[in-house]
Design a binder for these strands. Structure first.
Lengths: 218, 218
DNA sequence: AGTCAAGCTTTAGTATACAAGAATTGCTTC
DNA sequence: GAAGCAATTCTTGTATACTAAAGCTTGACT
């Protein structure tokens, strides 16, 4: 895609925020980090502003850039929005999806099932990804699809963890099947509801997972 | 709020794109415009990147910044998403809205009605604005509310025109009342449907308005 | 001894200078 | 005369130098 320094830096910083190298509240020193990346402050600042737009860092005037991890409340809100966005994609896709895309969905689900049988988280994750991307595209609204992808991407690191929960993959599969059924029959409301609860459950699972981790950490 | 040069420039440029000073495909010359704004290229470029994020300009590497007005297809898509977003806000607000906010909505509607009676587009616009803002807030999801406001703002210049259409204000009022009724009775689905069609109609009206203008221009 | 102010240091914001890439124009050749 | 190539010029992207503002420290005065 793009290979300008600012893009690379933005992506790299994003990665480091996600993987915990930078934690909440950390100040991102322009001179130090720019030097570390081997560029001057100008493109580095460009990257910072990009991250600020996506909500990963907060840019306080005359103070600097600070890492801004979403707190539990904001995360719950984002999952709720994701659930509703997917519901909307499903509602529209039910009326607009092509037969080819339906086949692709079924195929993705078959591979998902294979991954469940082999307890292969990575493979499951990849096919699950494909499943959702197809639905975004088949909403027939490219603006909606791109918004959905942006939010999906932003929640990725949080969604990833909860797949490891016991039985979650199998449960997720069942939900996927309900989605495909609704889309097959062109039932907008059913598709919307199936997708909403599918994603909402992810949010809830993540929430309880966090609570558990917090407890263990004390 | 903010009063940094880049913010002012971004807002000013946005204004000029909206009011037609810059039209689709125009290149925004960095040196010329920066000089015109009385700043150097650095803060001006910052403003450009901000506009690129909101989709108003396209930043082609090593080529420059070009005004990018959404075409008819993209606009329809955006209105569709706006309709669905408002529907979601309504769905959530139906369960979460406070009595105070309900009163505010009724009050806004009364003022809307007064504006309709006086054929006062400006007053109607202001109160209509308030009406929708309240619903965003009462979704109880600040992340959703902020996304809704961003899209609302982006569609503002396009929505504004169609209020002048004969009888549109009165029709809009009726739709508002249906929304309030649904929220009063806590009926999520009814609220969602009322808001979805309310906004969808705006999109359709805008579309036909554009078709008319295009015809007249030929 | 505590508090307030002044200046000192640090750092964000801005300007300018420099480098690299793309486009256009003019020249040469077929 | 047209087409292709090269050079020049214009413009974006990057680095660096400068400015100004915010916070901290130190010193003086109460």
């Amino acid at each position: 895609m793009e290979k300008r320094p600012a893009d690379i830096i933005a992506k790299d910083l994003e990665e480091r925020i996600f993987d915990g190298t930078f934690s909440d509240g950390d100040r991102l020193d322009e001179v130090r980090l720019a030097e570390q990346f081997g560029v001057s402050r100008t493109p580095f600042r460009e990257a910072l502003q990009r991250l600020a737009r996506s909500g990963l860092v907060e840019l306080i005037p005359r103070r600097g850039a600070f890492v801004r991890q979403p707190g539990p409340v904001e995360l719950m809100e984002m999952f709720e929005v994701m659930a509703e966005v997917e519901a909307v994609c499903g509602r529209l896709a039910a009326k607009r999806i092509s037969d080819d895309a339906l086949n692709d969905l079924r195929e993705a689900n078959i591979k998902c099932q294979a991954a469940v049988d082999q307890r292969d988280h990575i493979a499951y994750y990849a096919e699950n990804e494909r499943f959702h991307q197809i639905i975004y595209t088949q909403s027939g609204n490219s603006f909606l699809a791109s918004e959905a992808r942006a939010l999906h991407r932003r929640l990725q690191p949080f969604r990833r963890q909860q797949l490891r929960l016991r039985g979650r993959m199998a449960q997720s599969m069942t939900e996927h099947r309900a989605v495909v059924e609704a889309l097959e029959s062109g039932d907008s409301e059913a598709a919307a509801n199936a997708l909403r609860s599918h994603v909402a459950i992810q949010g809830e699972k993540f929430h309880s997972l966090m609570a558990t981790l917090r407890k263990a950490g004390e």
